[in-house]
């Protein structure tokens, strides 16, 4: 949990400095997902990034979704896994499944 802590503080600091920030959090995992629930990734419109929600396989897709959430203000619950066509596209090679919640820091 220490890592999740750090990311939240980083995201809060970015927000306080006037950045537009989204926070992605692993909410559920199945199989061999590399990061446990609670792992977080913070991204900004200006392109800053901290933390991770996987071994690096899905960060790009999550960051893309985060931009949309920042723009619309609407949170998203993303599904990644071997049963999901998206997973092949973004390459979750480990064979795990996970859900990621993406929200904007208002």
């Amino acid at each position: 949990m220490t890592q999740a802590d750090d990311i939240l503080s980083v995201a809060a600091a970015w927000r306080a400095a006037g950045e537009k920030v989204a926070l992605a959090t692993v909410t559920q995992t199945w199989g061999s997902s590399p990061r446990p629930a609670g792992s977080q990734l913070a991204v900004t419109v200006s392109g800053r990034m901290a933390g991770s929600v996987s071994g690096g396989c899905i960060e790009g897709a999550v960051a893309e979704a985060a931009m949309k959430t920042i723009e619309t203000g609407v949170p998203q619950l993303l599904d990644f896994g071997i049963t999901d066509e998206r997973a092949w596209e973004v390459g979750l090679a480990c064979g795990g499944k996970l859900k990621v919640f993406v929200e904007a820091l208002a």
């Binding site: 949990m1 999740a4 909410t27 559920q28 446990p36 629930a37 609670g38 859900k99």
Partner: peptide, 10 residues
């Protein structure tokens, strides 16, 4: 329960 187990989850 989550606090006691020190675990996050859905």
């Amino acid at each position: 329960r989550a606090l006691d187990r020190d675990e996050s989850g859905t």
